[in-house]
Write a protein that binds this DNA or RNA. Structure first.
Length: 222
DNA sequence: AGTGACCGGGAGGACCAGAG
DNA sequence: CTCTGGTCCTCCCGGTCACT
């Protein structure tokens, strides 16, 4: 597993472009205009608020992002989509997350068969014999890839997300992660919360509350 | 069309680690 | 030390497909 600190932002002002760089993607903000951390935050919030089908989506998004025009926000979004397409088509290599616990990438919950609490041999093992696997924490990069996949394939297509984005995780693991992620999202209004990787709600590294979570996520990274 | 097997997502809880 | 967060396990249920 790649040390999370290797990819951590030097400062909270790190924006989408640098986050994108971490995935080996091309510069996200090459449109000539620079984006501040606040603008990125507003941009991402607006994307979540205004539906894709909305005819005046970019007008609304631009209105939410200080100092940016409709054209600029639209271009910014297109670049993001290009990056996603690049990942999907394989043109852009994904980071490798091979770890010592490589086996975990195999279907851990692996209950391929329905209602089967079985191991590889198909026989159910008593809990005492079944060494419970230690959880392998999701890295920040994995979570970002998850968000990209979620954006691309939508909720429910965990297999595609696993195959094309979070290749180091099985569909079952992705689904499980998503489940807790959405639970977390739904409890967003709770006042006191521990910082968590699920605070990252967009691939760009800025959450909807405006907290830069890259640093906090790093502190929780094991 | 009916039936059964298989597959995959959702839900809920067990368990562990670590923040508070 | 307590409690919350994160991951994994297990079960349930609905959808799909092959077979009759």
């Amino acid at each position: 597993m790649r040390e999370i600190s290797d990819t951590l932002p030097a400062s909270p002002s790190r924006d989408l472009s640098s986050a994108v760089e971490d995935f080996g993607m091309e510069e996200a903000t090459n449109s000539g205009s620079t984006w501040t951390w606040e603008q990125e935050k507003a941009f991402e919030n607006a994307l979540a608020v205004y539906a894709e089908e909305s005819s005046n989506r970019w007008v609304c998004v631009a209105a939410d992002v200080d100092g940016k025009t409709e054209e600029e926000v639209r271009r910014h979004f297109e670049i993001l989509i290009e990056d996603i397409d690049g990942i999907e088509s394989g043109r852009v290599p994904l980071p490798s997350y091979v770890s010592s616990s490589e086996g975990s990438a195999e279907d851990i919950g692996g209950n391929k068969g329905k209602k089967s609490s079985s191991n590889a041999t198909g026989k159910k093992l008593p809990r005492t014999y079944q060494e419970r696997r230690k959880g392998i924490a999701w890295s920040e990069d994995e979570h970002r890839l998850f968000l990209l996949g979620l954006d691309k394939y939508g909720k429910g297509d965990w297999r595609s997300i696993s195959r094309n984005f979070v290749v180091s995780r099985t569909p079952t693991q992705v689904a499980s992660h998503a489940q807790k992620y959405f639970i977390r999202l739904n409890s967003m209004n709770k006042e006191r919360r521990r910082s968590s990787i699920h605070d990252i709600t967009t691939p760009a590294g800025v959450d909807k509350d405006g907290d830069d979570v890259t640093a906090t996520a790093a502190t929780t990274e094991q």
